[in-house]
């Protein structure tokens, strides 16, 4: 269960997406997410799907891993689709039987929402699959740096994020180890009712907290020893630089958004008011 977490999972590679500047990737992802909700008819929806497929192909991330990122949201997709199908009114009636009223608007909204959510998750998982957590936090720090004017401790926040991401796999290992140690002493984690199961977690959570605090203290000491002071004026070993391919992909993205807008205007909305 715990091994299914895909956040911060990086897939090593050297595709165009991997080489793009992380800041640009974040900007592009945000633009894409906004444009997802601009789609109003099947033509623009098709363009969005095509764009998602192309992104996945370029990234060279195995399809298996892409599906893994969709799996956790499958329930949400099904649930919202069902709600939309049964509750949205308007358009031509499709089914009209006793208390069940399904309209064309309901069906279309359900389809649109489902595809939008899936594309949103797939494209944003492309961001984390092709960008190392360190690059990601560096980029977020750079993008948020204007907030420094308002005394927001941007670099400290970014460091906290980097550390948090860095320690996810360490903690997963630690949980595994402690669980095994307690199982070896006969801890029963799989049986019993809800309360018993919660209680059975105490022997795992207490040592986990203790060792996390110990780790945090050791890490802070190690950072002190290397004269880390944080704050402004810190330079980076790897400087981020925008180059031609970043602007080229931005240009493609602008074309894509323009395409969606044009298709929307030309073919009109599919939902009937």
């Amino acid at each position: 269960m715990i091994k299914d977490i895909t956040i911060g999972q990086y897939f090593n590679g050297n595709s165009l997406l991997h080489r793009l500047d992380a800041r640009m990737k974040i900007i592009l992802t945000v633009i894409f997410i906004v444009s997802i909700f601009l789609c109003q008819n099947f033509w623009s929806l098709g363009l969005m799907l095509l764009f998602t497929l192309v992104t996945v192909t370029i990234s060279r991330v195995p399809l298996k891993m892409v599906f893994k990122s969709i799996k956790p949201i499958a329930i949400i997709v099904v649930f919202t689709s069902l709600l939309n199908i049964f509750y949205i009114k308007g358009g031509t009636p499709v089914v009209d039987w006793k208390f069940i009223h399904i309209t064309s608007n309901g069906l279309f909204t359900a389809l649109f929402m489902a595809l939008r959510i899936i594309c949103l998750v797939v494209v944003s998982s492309m961001l984390t699959y092709t960008t190392t957590p360190t690059m990601l936090t560096d980029a977020i720090e750079k993008l948020l740096s204007p907030l420094k004017v308002f005394k927001v401790p941007v670099s400290t926040l970014a460091m906290m994020m980097t550390l948090a991401l860095r320690f996810i796999p360490t903690l997963v290992d630690e949980i595994d180890r402690i669980t095994n140690a307690q199982k070896a002493r006969g801890a029963n984690l799989d049986d019993g009712n809800f309360m018993q199961r919660i209680k059975a977690l105490v022997p795992i959570i207490v040592p986990l907290f203790v060792s996390s605090i110990r780790r945090a203290i050791e890490l802070a000491d190690a950072m002190d020893c290397r004269c880390y002071t944080g704050g402004p004026g810190r330079t980076r070993m790897k400087q981020m630089k925008f180059c031609l391919r970043d602007f080229a992909t931005l240009f493609v993205m602008v074309l894509f958004v323009a395409g969606i807008v044009v298709l929307n205007m030309y073919f009109g909305a599919v939902l009937v008011k």
Partner: peptide
């Protein structure tokens, strides 16, 4: 088997709770 074969892991002090 868990009770017949007692296994004490590496750094067992981290299991105390």
């Amino acid at each position: 088997a868990r009770f017949k074969v007692g296994l004490c892991f590496q750094y067992p002090e981290y299991q105390l709770f």
